[in-house]
């Protein structure tokens, strides 16, 4: 084992976040956050609104530059990357945005095939073939020519998911995959996420405050509170956690250490 403990990365770690700090003015969002995600694992990060869950995954994909700390993706420290290297790294990622973030000037098939069009030399017909296949994978048929404005919220999320997996990424990031959906559609998305992990063997990080979803899709769950991961474990371990903060959050109580501001 290398003696430089700080830099040692376990070979089966896909993403390693070490001592991450990020502030926006006086708002100290991340304060020394540590997280390790194993290859092929579905990590769910839970935490209240505004605790910096989104900031965390945006740091991982390089949309936000952290103030301090390192993030290793597949063994490489991406915080030292320049824009071109970041761009190259992002090809390993697929990201599902909270509201889909579909390009509303393009029909569904161009949205899903966007990465293929930009980064491969495939012809339009071949791209359409792949698009149809990915749309089928998320349970959608015959909507290739529709515009994003013609889709419902749940469909937008599924199209966005199809876009995220179109380039067959190694890592998938889910930003609140079930927020704003009815319970049935939320479960459809949860099932999809589980299926994708099994079919595509991707590593994924999902951030959510929907506990039903967290228990269902998470191999492990990490709780983010006041800029740090305060507890991490399997869904069962989290359910039986002794930590009062975790208990208040997962049971959704208005009384407890979080609301008392401890």
């Amino acid at each position: 084992m290398p003696n430089d403990g700080q830099q040692y990365i376990k070979p089966d770690s896909m993403i390693v976040v070490r001592d991450l700090y990020k502030s926006f003015g006086e708002n100290h969002v991340l304060q020394g956050l540590n997280l390790e995600v194993t290859r092929g694992e579905d990590m769910v990060v839970i935490g209240g609104s505004g605790t910096g869950k989104s900031v965390l995954i945006k740091c991982i994909i390089g949309l936000i530059k952290p103030d301090k700390g390192t993030i290793f993706v597949d063994g490489e420290d991406m915080t030292s990357f320049n824009e071109a290297m970041l761009n190259e790294m992002r090809k390993k990622f697929g990201m599902l945005f909270q509201f889909g973030a579909l390009f509303d000037s393009m029909p569904v098939w161009e949205n899903v095939g966007f990465g293929l069009k930009q980064h491969t030399n495939l012809k339009d017909d071949d791209i359409r073939g792949i698009v149809t296949e990915k749309l089928n994978l998320v349970g959608l048929k015959g909507i290739e020519e529709l515009m994003p404005s013609e889709l419902s919220g749940g469909m937008k999320k599924r199209v966005s998911l199809a876009r995220a997996i179109a380039m067959e990424p190694e890592i998938l990031l889910y930003d609140e995959p079930t927020t704003g959906l009815d319970p049935i559609m939320a479960d459809v998305i949860n099932e999809l996420i589980i299926q994708l992990r099994e079919k595509l063997r991707v590593t994924s990080i999902a951030i959510t405050h929907d506990m039903v979803s967290a228990y269902k899709i998470g191999d492990r769950i990490a709780m983010l509170y006041k800029g740090k991961i305060i507890e991490i474990g399997t869904p069962d371990e989290i359910r039986n956690s002794k930590n009062e903060i975790v208990q208040q959050f997962i049971q959704g109580k208005s009384e407890g250490p979080i609301t008392r501001g401890e």
């Binding site: 945006k58 994909i61 390089g62 949309l63 824009e83 761009n87 190259e88 992002r90 090809k91 990622f93 697929g94 990201m95 945005f97 909270q98 509201f99 973030a101 579909l102 390009f103 509303d104 000037s105 966007f114 990465g115 930009q118 980064h119 876009r163 380039m167």
Partner: peptide, 21 residues
């Protein structure tokens, strides 16, 4: 207005995420 809407609906972030500047 168009780029602003794309910015606030995370479409600009989505471009970055799809490795497109």
């Amino acid at each position: 207005a168009e780029l602003g809407t794309m910015q606030v609906t995370e479409q600009v972030d989505a471009l970055y995420a799809l490795a497109t500047n």
